[in-house]
Amino acid sequence: MSHDLQYIVAFILVAVLFSIVALLTAWLLRPNRPTFEKLQVYECGEETQGVPYIKYNVRFYVVALLYLVFGVELVLVIPWVASYLEYGLFGLILGLFFLIILGVGIVYEWKKVISTGSLMRMLL
């Protein structure tokens, strides 16, 4: 008895085993002669200033929030798509009502977030 999940686990295991084997082979073959300069971060010729773990711009979180809104709404739409034909016109209009609210969300996102350009310019 084999379950679908076993195949997925098998694929993940094969990926892990392959990468471990590849890395081990390279580990056996390669030289290892670290020097102080080699172990520096590859940024520029000068000595590195500061740490990279800075505060992120809040706009990245705005993008994540937008994704969350649309992702969740799409997930809510999937069961409706699977069954709306069974409920006739009522089902269609009910779903379209929901989708129109989502459309208002798109218009809002377009007007407020995208068109002003401030969000996108800061992501540079």
Binding site: T25, A26, W27, L29, R30, P31, N32, L39, Y42
Partner: peptide, 10 residues
């Protein structure tokens, strides 16, 4: 495969 694997200090 033969290249040295460098992991930066930090």
């Amino acid at each position: 495969m033969q290249k040295e694997d460098i992991v930066a200090n930090g």
